[in-house]
Amino acid sequence: MNDVPATHSWRRFTPAQRLARFTVYLAIVAAIVTSIQTVEIIPEFLSDAPEQVADLLRRMWPIDVAYYPKGVHAALMETIHIASLGTLLALILALPVGILAAHNVCPFTPVNLVAKLILVSSRSVNSLVWALLFVGIFGPGALAGTLAIAFRSIGFVGKLFGEALEETSRGSIEALAAAGAPWASRLSFGYWPQVKPSFWSIALFRWDINVRESAVLGLVGAGGIGMTLDSALNLFQWNRVATILAAIFFVVILAELAVTFVRKRII
């Protein structure tokens, strides 16, 4: 069939689009090459790595289980409290900001922009940096950790919640407006039922992340198991380090199980 005269010529992309696609590929390759040069991998250290790992594992074994009740348990509980309380605080703060960020719920572009600015600034700062800030303000301890978790989570929860609001179906809201429902009632009767499952699923997901994030906050003095980990690391008590890592691992798995279980129920 190849000798059919070509009366139509068809190409998926225009020449301009092809050029643009080629440029993007080229940029990706250039970026990879540049980064490898910048990282400066030292071959000796690379070849040495397996030996170092084996050495570390040998020092960590056996796990110091006896250390758990007296040194780890309380700190671990504090970590979970920091994560949970921080998430709760974030939910409360993110709810109004998310609403103000959604253009269909709050049709005032300047307000949307301010809300989005709040969400972006919350997200652009890492939990550890938030923790450093709050340790500076409130001194070391769980309060700084809780606030760090909350402030980092506002951006995450608020952004996803706002996007969920913007994806709601317009029809049912229109029907409520046609019945003369005021804004607050449209929100609670029209928008909320539509976004409720996503809201709780975002909340659970964030709590899950926060359990993991709050475990390291102690490295900068913001309370929780990270502080215990920090001192064990500084004193080269590798058996204790192993105990702490195992405890964190265990809690993260438990959190994962809990989140999966609850999510199945609400959706």
């Binding site: 179906s169 029809g171 229109e174 029907a175 039922p193 539509q194």
Partner: peptide, 8 residues
């Protein structure tokens, strides 16, 4: 399209 609130 009826425009009910589906989840209520």
């Amino acid at each position: 399209e009826y425009n009910l609130v589906e989840r209520l």
